[in-house]
Amino acid sequence: LAHGAGGKATHTLIEAVFLEAFRNPLLEPLADGAVTDGLAITTDSYVVKPLFFPGGDIGDLAVNGTVNDLAMCGATPRHLTASFILEEGLPIADLRRITASMAAAAHAAGVHIVTGDTKVVENGKADGCYITTAGIGALDRGATLSAASVTPGDAVIVSGPIGDHGMTIMLARGELDLEAHLTSDTAPLHDLTGRLLAACGDGVRCLRDATRGGVATVLNEIAAASRTCVVLDENAVPVRPQVRGACELLGIDPLYVACEGRMVAVVAPHRADAALDALRSHPLGTDAALIGRAGDDPPGLVLLKTCFGGTRIVDLLVGDPLPRIC
C-alpha cells in the first residue's frame, strides 16, 4: 500500500477498493459529501504532524474540515460527531487544548458535537491523536452542485491565496529550521459559501475545498468529471510571498499545496463578477480571484498558461513529486 498525498495513487486506491466494494448512486460521484433526503452527510479523518501549528491544531482542522465538506455540498452544517484514537502517553494537557479548540471552532461554525467515541491505543501506534468527525447539514436551497455540471466558458475562482496551510505544516515540523511568518488558513467556509450561493444561485456549478493535493488536484477532478479543459492563468493565481518563497526553496508548486480554508468555485460565465463581489465582501474571501476558465479541448486536462507564454500540463500527481529533468 503506497502512501497517499492526495494524488493519483490515492485515487486508484479509492476506485479499485472502496468504490468497488460499496458501489451505490450516492457514492458514485466520489464527492466530499453525499446529499439525500434534504440532508448533506460527510465524514473525514484527521491525521496531522505536528498536532499544534501556527494558526491552529488538529482540533480546529477536525471541525472546520467537516464543516467545509458540508458547505461544499451547499448545505448549512448542523451537527457533528467526533471519534478519537489516542496514543498512550499523550499529555492530558494536549488533549484539553485540542478539545478546547474543537469547542471554539464548533461554536464559531454554529454546530454542536452531539456524539462521539474514544479509543486508547498502545504507545507508538498513533501519532499522538487521530480524530474522525462526521457531520450532517441542512440543504435549504434547491441548487445542486456537482463537478459534472461544469461547462465550457465557466469561470474558475479561488477564494483566497493558496498553500498557506500546507506550507505552515511543512515548516512547523521543524526539520527545516526556517523562519517564515506563516499561519494555517484553517477556517469554516459555510458562511462564505452561503453568501456566494445567495448572490449567484443556480449560477454556481460546483464548490470544492482545496485540501489534500491542493488546487491542482481539485481542478483535475473537476476537469475529469465534466470532460472540460480547465485553463489557468499563472499570473492570476494568488499566492502569498512567504508561501511562494518557501515553495521556491523546496521546489514545490503551490498549486499542489493543501489549504484548509480555501475553496475553488466554478460559476457560470455571466455570474463571475457577482461571485467575486460576494466572496470579497466576506473576511475569508477578500483576496478571491478569477484564476481561469473551463474550455472544451482537450477534455479532462488542466493547463496552465505560463508567464513565458507556454502551456504547461498541470497533471494529477502520482505520488510525491520527483524532478522529471534528466
Binding site: E248, L249, L250, G251, P321, L322, P323, R324, I325
Partner: peptide, 9 residues
C-alpha cells in the same frame, strides 16, 4: 541530496 528537487537543477 538535491535541495528543492527541480529547483536544484
Amino acid at each position: 541530496p538535491m535541495p528543492g528537487g527541480a529547483a536544484a537543477v
